[in-house]
Design a protein around this nucleic acid. Sequence first.
DNA 1: CCGATGACCATTT
DNA 2: AAAATGGCCATCG
Length: 114
Amino acid sequence: MNTSLSTKDFFEQVYQVVKLIPKGRVTSYGAIGNYLGARKSARMVGWAMNASHAHFDIPAHRVVNRIGLLTGKFHFEKECTMQEKLESEGITVEKDQIQNFKIIFWDPSKELAI
DNA sequence: CCGATGACCATTT
DNA sequence: AAAATGGCCATCG
């Protein structure tokens, strides 16, 4: 069996955190990675989101890069899907840039309080 | 098997 | 202060 519970568990952790993101809030790949103790492996978090297509309950639109830019919008059904969903939750997005990002930023390391 | 790529972030120059 | 590069780990060709 999976004696080496590494990647799969890492994915699960990411999905759990993403699913716990409150409505109207956003977080960054690095924040999740930092919460999981892998801030250097932020790319893996992003890659995990790419695999999130296999999971339907993953609000990947609430996850953006550290500057609040919708870098992964092209990975959604349509380029505007991500922005549409964010605005649908009360988040203002301008030119793929989330407004008030610092205000709506949701840091798992602080909110979930390790 | 080796090389290149990636929804990133941090450090150094 | 801004720009460039390295690092990290996994998947694809």
